[in-house]
Amino acid sequence: MMTPITPAVELTGLARRYGAAYVLKNINLTVTPGRTLILRGGNGAGKTTLLRVLSTRLRPSRGSGRVLGFDLVREAHRVREHVAYLSVFGGAYGGLTARENLALAAKLYGKRGHTDGFLEHVGLHDARDKLVRTFSSGMKKRLGVARLLLADADLWLLDEPYAALDESGRELIDSLLVTAKDTGKTVLMASHELERSARFADRILDVRGGTLVVAPVPREVSRV
């Protein structure tokens, strides 16, 4: 299917294995920029693997993929300029403070300017000089959100963004998804919490045994 605009994600026959077992099987998926997709499925269904393949962290075992027109393998470094990934753990250094972690991220993303605003936004202002090791998992997640915003990427890959967060944290994710929609970001998110996330979704994809199936969007939440 040809579209005049470059798809945000374009996967052709993509498969990925761990050892001998395939976790993703022969997936064909095209995502128009600006869409928000939810990946739903049990543990081990392949949600995280799909996100990690899109982030260039894992190479496809078969098939090919493009993100915003850049090949996942041959132009991986270009893909990385356009993708931000929020992992379950947060991916920060326990031995550094929140502020130091974010300053490091800013430098490595090649961004200038202060990072304190982002910490303020995610509600970590008071904890900014504490070591991340002492953080709760919710606070680590918030720090991950701050880095995601800082990266200012076009494609957001969110792995269980609501997990481990308290109510204000969940509202933060809600507002994050609204921001994404408003600013034309493409979002792929693995999520169990459908009642919360479904209202932001354009589509829900069921991930079952490494395959994708389009699930009907519940009518009452179908449109934002």
């Binding site: 990385r80 993708v83 753990f89 991916g91 920060a92 250094y93």
Partner: peptide, 18 residues
């Protein structure tokens, strides 16, 4: 070890750097 503890290496490898 400090890279592996909190999944930091995963993040480090995703920065747009050679």
């Amino acid at each position: 070890q400090s890279e592996l503890d909190e999944g930091a290496l995963e993040q480090l490898l995703l920065y747009p750097l050679p």
